[in-house]
């Protein structure tokens, strides 16, 4: 067989070179335009961007440090005069700064743990789904086994063995969340594997890695992205729950969950210690859910009709 390809195809593309190439409009661009028409998702996106900005630069702009104790104003209610806009807690720490700093941790946990579960889950699920058969059965049985472990027991065990550390929280949450991701991705891959365009790629001699990379993963991304935006709030909530139980981040570090826990204890005497972190947490959860819903509608317009 000739190894170099015959490039003589009729007259050389003179006409084509003169004409300007037509711009393509990918499905991603289409989906993006649809997303921009979804008011709830756009507003949520703006709120989240603002929130992210506040959390990142807010503490630096504030006159207070997160662990500074203002002995003149312990358990002070919100007031502009004292400079504690959100008030202080029982040991005189500024709630605003602590909420923003706690937000850093909460969002960081949300993003990192989700990222961990994304990377592991997508590759694991795609491999299991694509190769199928025996490989698939073994891999998914392992998922089932890990799934069967009681999550709380697992976390407590980790804490007892390794001590409390923020990295452990990433590991604990990520270790559980990738299971769901793997299952979703596997299901999608199984159906994608049987589509004609994957068969066409196989018929063209494309190897397995390239098929997974070029044909399976890009077509999975829509579902994965939706799932990711819905996972982030879930992870934040799990972290808050752990912190609420006292298994989460440790002082002086804080997260929304830990702050809500602290606030709940002083709820009657100083309700502001509970209200502000809780409000931040709720708003974030709502926003992510709206963005996730908006993305689902945008990526799969058929559902809406």
């Amino acid at each position: 067989m000739n190894s170099s390809i015959d490039l003589q195809v009729e007259d050389p593309f003179a006409a084509a070179m003169i004409e300007v190439d037509v711009r393509g409009r990918s499905l991603w661009v289409d989906a993006w335009h649809r997303l921009l028409k979804n008011r709830a998702a756009v507003i949520s996106g703006i709120i989240m961007a603002t929130m992210l900005l506040l959390v990142l630069v807010g503490p630096a702009l504030s006159p207070w440090e997160g662990d500074f104790t203002d002995w003149d104003n312990t358990s002070a209610p919100p007031s502009l005069e004292t400079g504690h806009w959100f008030g202080t807690d029982s040991v005189g720490r500024d709630i605003l700064v602590r909420t923003l700093e706690g937000g850093r941790i909460s969002l960081l946990v949300g993003l990192v743990a989700t990222l961990v579960s994304l990377v592991i889950g997508v590759s694991y699920g795609a491999i299991a789904g694509y190769y199928g058969g025996f490989t698939d059965r073994i891999m998914m049985r392992m998922v089932d086994i890990v799934y069967a472990l009681p999550f709380m027991f697992f976390v407590i065990l980790l804490m007892v063995v390794f001590g409390r550390h923020i990295v452990l929280i990433f590991v604990a949450i990520g270790a559980v969340n990738w299971l769901d991701m793997a299952r979703i991705v596997r299901g999608q891959t199984l159906s994608l594997k049987n589509t004609e365009f994957v068969e066409a790629a196989r018929a063209c001699g494309v190897d397995h890695h390239a098929i997974i990379r070029r044909h399976i993963i890009p077509n999975l991304l829509g579902v994965v992205m939706v799932y990711v935006t819905l996972t982030i709030p879930q992870v934040i909530l799990v972290e808050s729950f752990l912190s609420f139980l006292g298994l989460g981040v440790q002082e002086p570090m804080s997260s929304w969950g830990a702050l809500v826990n602290d606030g709940a204890q002083d709820m009657e005497s100083a309700p502001w210690t509970l209200v502000f972190p809780a409000a931040f947490l709720t708003v974030t959860l709502y926003c992510f859910n709206y963005i996730g819903d908006g993305m689902r509608d945008a990526l799969d317009p058929k559902d809406r009709l």
Binding site: I5, G24, S26, L27, W28, T195, E196, F197, E199, A200, A201, A203, C204, G205, V206, D207, A210, R214, H215, P218, N219
Partner: peptide
Amino acid sequence: QIVFQDPVASLNPRMTAGDIISEPLWT
């Protein structure tokens, strides 16, 4: 080589026409 029945389903919706035609060459 093979040409498939469903012209739309046999093309990856995330790839451009050029990429689809070029893929066997890349391979």
